[in-house]
Design a protein around this nucleic acid. Structure first.
Lengths: 203, 203
DNA sequence: GTCTATATCATGATAGAC
DNA sequence: GTCTATCATGATATAGAC
């Protein structure tokens, strides 16, 4: 049916965020105009302002949602017990879960991930200050796993802070090449990186 | 001395590239205007076009120069013999040299590196097609080291292609946190990452 | 809720004086 | 080689009709 002037819709909001997500990821925040976003949704540019006060808020909301989902979903995964114990889990099991979660989470959200680390500098200072601690909080959880593993003797590495950054960087790299339907399945990718991470931390 | 209209200078060209490099790295290609670049140099916007036909060429030239320097300097390093032999060097020695070179090269050129991998999508398709093979050529040299190491039994990893990408991603991550004068010296950073890479490839 | 129309401003690039 | 001035375009955001 042809798009008319009168009304609809309940789903324009989500479609705007979807279009912005895709376009920001593909071309970069500053290279995308409100007109382009509107065109992709099928409305005029002015209509976007019924859903967002401005372009910057649109970007911030996308990032905020991504980080919140990341933290929430990891909290659930981390809380899941491996069915045998309810004591504190050993560091290698926790690390494996982190690695597989991180890859799985990001591999299924390439656009969100791309924006989350490429468009940080497009945020206003105030918005940046609200996103950055969330990312820090996520990375700190990896470091606590590495610290625990070193303390228990399960891992061996010269510097857990640097190792944290190295592992995150290595895992984030997956999104630069992984494509669904490619040579490797998600399960295979997770297994390969888990093997490499395990070795890297001296497990 | 005050900037005058009449003439100078021989060094405006380099200063333009320097300013563009810094501003592109800091704010992103699309967020930087020709007027901003001109202001940083201390000329008017129109004067920039005595040195570059357009903004896109300015970006391309910066990237091209970076990639050419990278390949040239690595070629020199790779050709250097460890003083004892002139036979083919063992893979672990070659890998160590690669890791230290990669970190050292990029750590001293944070702006160039930032642009080289964040602004690829700001290139026109034609320019991208000229840059991409250079990056590929560089990464292929790492993979050939890993392949040689696996063949000789010095390394052990399930997939050298993925390992190549993983190592590159891990090493590139250094530039997200390293700052001169920080907790770790360049030598210490190189040593830490060499340890982690060594383990990751099963050396 | 969406449209059309518009205010306001910044952009990349060019022309011509000096 | 740089300046001033300007063109043509496209940007974000708003106002008011429907």
């Amino acid at each position: 049916m042809a798009r008319t002037a009168g009304s609809h819709s309940d789903i324009t909001g989500p479609r705007i965020r979807e279009a912005a997500l895709h376009l920001f990821a593909r071309h970069g925040y500053n290279a995308v105009s409100m007109r382009q976003i509107a065109a992709q949704v099928g409305v005029q540019a002015g209509a976007l302002y019924n859903y967002t006060p401005d372009k910057q808020t649109l970007l911030f909301d996308l990032m905020q949602h991504h980080m919140t989902t990341l933290l929430d979903e990891y909290a659930q995964i981390a809380a899941t017990q491996p069915a045998t114990q309810n004591a504190t889990q050993p560091a290698p099991a926790r690390l494996q879960r982190f690695v597989r979660f991180h890859i799985g989470f990001h591999i299924t959200r390439p656009d969100e991930m791309f924006i989350a680390y490429m468009e940080l500098r497009a945020l206003t200072p105030e918005n940046f200050a609200r996103i950055e601690p969330q990312r820090r909080r996520y990375e700190d959880q990896l470091q606590s796993i590495l610290d625990a593993g070193v303390a228990s003797g399960a891992f061996s590495m010269p510097d857990t802070k640097i190792a944290t950054l190295a592992v995150i960087a290595m895992l984030n790299g997956v999104n630069t090449w992984y494509r669904p339907g490619g040579r490797l399945s998600q399960e295979e990718v997770e297994a390969l990186y888990w093997t490499m991470v395990q070795k890297a931390v001296g497990a």
